[in-house]
Write a protein that binds this DNA or RNA. Structure first.
Lengths: 338, 338
DNA sequence: CGGCGTCCTGCTCACATGAGCACAGCGGCC
DNA sequence: GGCCGCTGTGCTCATGTGAGCAGGACGCCG
């Protein structure tokens, strides 16, 4: 393209978008036919001279969403733009709101909703509108934080979500990680706990977040893990935790011994479930987000633009060059009952 | 408007602008009629959820230009967006380019072009394309800097502009400010100088920049003024200089004594001229820019978005409440030959 | 309880726009 | 030098879009 055309297209774009002139008028002003003007505008858009941005806390990035969905075989994806957000907390809040919106719009309305807990899910709970659904039974799917923190977080999340849906919350009365396998076994065999785990396994929708392997992890803050435990996990390839279980980049359990002492739904149940919603935001969680989507832990990912871009930027076969499996049904064990 | 409509309009905007869907399709997706979608988009635009930005070094801000033109009775205005420009130098370069563009597009092509000198005008000279016009006589309209700087700047500017237009440059061989009035008088009465000043007074287009009252003013750097001279000028209300003459916020000469010793075209000549182009950029020049446009020193202002906004933000009568004169023909002495 | 004004909705119609097509000018290639 | 393909241009036509209008719902007030 000639340099002159570039200038003209910019001038045309100014007149069209800033001045609300019609392409015909612009043609008259610049001495061009209106078709030429149309073409100039098209190239200007294509070459990125015209930037259209939707600035709203609840705006989403649909292009990224579709790309994510196709790339990782998700049923749905929600990507929140970072835009001019001041800090990570604001982005996290937007992601939580988006997750709440998604949950509210979910059809069919879940009968039983399994949830994990954490800062993220608490935000989601708070962002849900009163009466976002009706008659939803909420059940915790992994052991709680209530041991040596004020019992707030974990229980409050479940109760809030349930209350706003006019349903009941079932809490899992157990620590997240126990010190001895025997204790974990005996807790699980307790009638109450076993019943709750059965209920959790029968949920039709799961909602969970993920933890990074950073020192401010809830597991460390709550005393379930020490810093050097975490460092050891990282050495062994951990990228983060999902419902209390630490996984590597391939979504596999990093430390079976530790996992044996962790109370809650096994990850396989999440991989089988028809609808699992993962809510993840923040640069430190890119790795765990990648593990989640790559290993089929969720069918719906709610995240921020930064993570979405990072997930898509990872090298991937331009046209499946010798890939070991075809791309579409990446997780054949997934039920497809909608 | 209901909160729901806000959400819907954002969703609709996403689909329309990010996804290139038609309003009809969006209607189908969201369960609305296409007219409703159109209205939602309109309100979204109006309420600023949709930001359309033209990102190009040569883009302009036409809305501001028109506002400036109307507000100050300018024949034309060119406003360059600041956008994501890294620093003031980049903005200044864009403004210079815009001025060069304006000059190139000027019709009728000037026969004689009177110019001042300075960093800004040198940039303009460099930004002009070869052959931007043909047969233009360029003449300096104020005394030069050539005294104790290497003779470059002032002369180079004029020569470059003239060369690129295939015309000749006439330099004003005189210091900008003399120490004694008598010297100034005798220089002006010199045949050569007088002839050049006559030529300068007969130019049909003037192009000039403005100086701020900062310590890095060319007048100080060139030794025409001392720092305390400048401070004294500021105390007396000076906001900057135009073709070497210091003016206050109303465009009046601040120090007649100093002005008497300044060689060059009187400001009155600029105010009478049919076409005078002022090129001003940088936050430190807002005050002098305001003085220029408010006192009718230019018919065309080329500037940056920052200055433009500052000029328009100044309080002004919402509907001429007891103003001493009507608003449109603010400078009745201006020739209107165009 | 009824009348009235206001806001909102869905429509018709005129206009703006983009896709697709035919043709002209130009450069490379035989 | 002539032929061929390519790019760029102006057009026709189908579609997308916004202005203006009529009817209905809602709330306010008598």
């Amino acid at each position: 393209m000639k340099i002159d055309d570039e200038l003209l297209s910019v001038r045309a774009a100014e007149l069209y978008y800033d001045e609300d002139k019609t392409q015909d008028e612009i043609g008259a002003i610049l001495g061009l036919t209106r078709w030429k003007v149309g073409r100039l505008l098209a190239t200007a858009k294509q070459r990125g001279f015209i930037r259209i941005e939707i600035v709203h806390p609840r705006a989403r990035r649909l292009g990224l969403e579709r790309a994510l969905g196709e790339r990782f075989g998700l049923a749905d994806a929600v990507v929140v733009p970072v835009g001019d957000a001041a800090d990570a907390a604001e982005v996290a809040a937007r992601v939580a709101t988006a997750a709440a919106d998604h949950l509210t719009a979910l059809r069919p309305v879940p009968r039983t909703l399994g949830i994990s807990w954490g800062r993220t899910l608490l935000s989601v709970a708070n962002a849900l509108p009163e009466g976002w659904a009706s008659g939803v039974a909420v059940v915790q799917i992994n052991g709680g934080v209530s041991v040596n923190r004020r019992s707030g977080t974990a229980a409050a999340t479940a109760v809030e979500i349930a209350r706003k849906a006019g349903g009941g919350a079932t809490l899992l009365p157990s620590p997240a990680i126990l010190e001895r396998v025997e204790t974990k076994r005996s807790i699980e065999s307790d009638r109450t706990v076993a019943g709750i785990l059965d209920l959790a396994a029968s949920a039709d929708v799961y909602l969970f977040s993920a933890g990074a392997t950073t020192p401010d992890s809830a597991h460390i803050e709550s005393g379930y893990l020490r810093r050097d435990d975490m460092e050891e996990l990282v050495r062994r390839g951990a990228v983060g935790d999902v419902v209390g279980r630490y996984i590597d980049a391939d979504g596999r359990i990093v430390d079976p011994g530790l996992d044996e002492r962790t109370v809650g739904l096994p990850l396989e149940r999440l991989r089988e479930a028809a609808r699992t919603i993962a809510v993840v935001s923040g640069a430190e969680k890119v790795a765990v987000a990648r593990a989640i989507v790559a290993s089929g832990l969720c069918t719906v990912l709610v995240t921020d633009e930064g993570i979405a871009n990072a997930l898509l930027a990872a090298v991937h076969p331009p046209d499946d060059p010798g890939g070991s499996q075809d791309s579409s049904p990446r997780h054949p064990s997934r039920r497809t009952t909608t």
